[in-house]
């Protein structure tokens, strides 16, 4: 059944390229099947399915869920296949080097993929976060938050944050990439026994 899924990749191959073990990749396949069949049962995760799982709402636009989807969709064909899902999730593994997490976060925040996080992009993200959280701040306050952050992060003072400045900034504020690590990815089989149970059933089939 797994082989009928478009873009299915051998768990052993995926395990060899990521910090996951073969049985963990199999457990992730159970999760993938669930996510990829929540709206359209075609073995691929569509944007709406991803967003539904992340923010429990398929209609409300969420800039950040959109950005994560775009980065997971490595082939940029509008869907996340199993291999893309596992490789992208591996960034969030506790054993993945921090430099990869810092790089991923930079790409997330570089909304227009110019190689820089620009002031306008940061403001757009702050406004999106406020909107998502039903928080209202005056434009003055938003401008102040963005300005202060830029003064702090843009050490070269050229009005944009490059990857080097970003690395220095994260080194000073490590909490900024806390959400780039999912502790339980280290032992998915313990954290998600139901997925393992299912994958064992499949193994014996």
């Amino acid at each position: 059944r797994a082989r009928q899924i478009p873009g299915y990749e051998d768990p052993a191959t995926l395990a060899s390229e990521t910090p996951f073990t073969v049985s963990e990749v199999e457990a992730l396949f159970e999760l993938f099947k669930k996510l990829s069949s929540s709206i359209i049962d075609d073995g691929l995760i569509h944007r709406e399915e991803f967003q539904l799982a992340l923010i429990r709402n398929r209609n409300k636009k969420n800039l950040f869920a959109d950005r994560v989807f775009d980065l997971f969709d490595v082939k940029r064909n509008g869907v996340i296949a199993f291999g893309e899902f596992v490789r992208s999730l591996s960034i969030f593994h506790p054993n993945t080097p921090e430099v990869d997490k810092i790089d991923f976060a930079f790409k997330l925040y570089d909304l227009r993929q110019t190689g820089f996080i620009e002031r306008e992009e940061l403001k757009e993200m702050v406004l999106a976060l406020l909107n998502e959280s039903d928080l209202v701040l005056s434009d003055d306050v938003v401008e102040t938050i963005v300005d202060k952050t830029f003064v702090d992060a843009d050490s070269k003072g050229d009005g944009k944050i490059d990857t080097e400045e970003w690395k220095e900034f994260v080194a000073r504020y490590p909490s900024l990439i806390k959400n780039m690590t999912l502790p339980y990815l280290k032992d998915i089989t313990l954290a998600f026994p139901s997925f393992v149970m299912n994958s064992e059933v499949e193994d014996s089939e």
Partner: peptide, 25 residues
């Protein structure tokens, strides 16, 4: 004086960036 938050710290709290939500039932 109000504490001025780090904008990146603020946006890192987005639900859309909390991948653990993918694992919730």
């Amino acid at each position: 004086r109000p504490v001025i938050m780090n904008a990146f710290e603020l946006i890192s709290t987005s639900q859309g960036l909390n991948l653990s939500n993918l694992f919730e039932k």
